[in-house]
Design a protein around this nucleic acid. Structure first.
Lengths: 198, 198
DNA sequence: GGTAATGGCTAACGGATGTTAGTGTAAAGC
DNA sequence: GCTTTACACTAACATCCGTTAGCCATTACC
């Protein structure tokens, strides 16, 4: 039963690390800081994790897997492009809302992954983005979306909006994550302006 | 004439530092790294700057001043809210495009400012955001924008989209910054969907 | 031509960093 | 009851960090 009980404490370490990395950034967070948050000595951390970077890796790649899973579900649905986009946005927001701390780390700190890990991460990311791009292109071809939009610009704007959510969203506030997803997708798809206005 | 000639070399240092901070992040960038980029020794940097943080400060606050100036010009114009928003967006993009490197640092590294400087910075930022928020509210009241939108969500989405531009925009590509500003404001104000569609 | 300023150097500081080695101890499993 | 496992400890390592002190060469100014 080693592995199972291991997870409990190891995940506790990773969770606290996520909080720390989010607050101060990966590079500015020391293992001694992390140990202090857990009430132990820095050296004791190494009973649970192999290195500082291993923590970052598990945070980044676990989140990446969640995003991928969410998008795959959406892609399976047989609906219009704009509806697919809407569901994709809501799904993405949902994944983030489940762990805002890890999401923030995923977004802001992944660049501190070393060499091959960074490469793998960026490949996953490009793939994810391209699948959203494909949905937008589908909508352009089907005539749902404007034909003169720049797809790259659109998809980047989309991700910018989504990915910064963890930085300002307060989960204890009056607006919940599903609501955010709805409004955000409406805003991006329909815009701020009234449809009947000029 | 000390100050004038000083600027030249000092600004050279700051510019290289901006590149470094952008690539590796402030905390992960060492003064020895920076010195190497300039072909000098780390200790020699201190003939030009007082500290590492002074560099970050000048980068952050100089950009903040540029943004403020741009917005003030827009606010002076006597036009509709949606036009004001459009001009504000284009102005913001324009300021970023003038120095993408400093913009990226401004956005991602400001949190490493210490104590009172961080506080001042955040106050400037909140003020800037609130002035955009006021434009959106103006548009909602005047009936140009939908009345059921969440202003905070809208303005945060707006800034997310704007602020991530330095991360993906390639100034050597075929799409120039004015074009980006135009398209971005169109996308946020009018949405992706055709106005006559469903 | 003397003087000041500019921009660089070497050497060194005190402290923080990630990590390893080796040890102890309380609980869990056979 | 013995052994393993989980989890903590202390001590220490080599290296990197930002920064200071003091010195030297070249250029600009009066």
């Amino acid at each position: 039963m080693e592995a199972v009980m291991n997870l409990s404490r190891k995940e506790q370490v990773i969770r606290k690390a996520a909080e720390l990395f989010r607050e101060k950034g990966y590079a500015a967070s020391s293992m001694r800081d992390l140990a202090q948050k857990l009430g132990i000595e820095a050296a004791s951390l190494y009973s649970h994790i192999k290195s500082k970077e291993e923590i970052l890796r598990s945070l980044c790649f676990d989140m990446a897997a969640e995003f991928r899973k969410s998008l795959e579900e959406v892609e399976r649905q047989n609906v219009s492009a704009s509806e697919k986009l809407r569901l994709g946005i809501i799904g993405h927001i949902g994944v983030m809302a489940k762990d805002l701390t890890a999401s923030a780390v995923f977004m802001n700190e992944h660049r501190h992954l070393s060499g091959p890990y960074l490469r793998d991460f960026l490949l996953l990311r490009i793939n994810y983005i391209n699948r959203f791009k494909a949905i937008i292109e589908e909508g352009t071809k089907s005539g749902e979306f404007k034909e003169n939009i720049d797809t790259k610009l659109s998809v980047m704007t989309l991700f910018s909006s989504l990915n910064w959510m963890p930085q300002w969203y307060n989960p204890d506030g009056k607006i919940d994550s599903i609501n955010i997803g709805q409004q955000l997708s409406d805003m991006l798809v329909n815009g701020l302006k009234k449809q009947n206005a000029q």
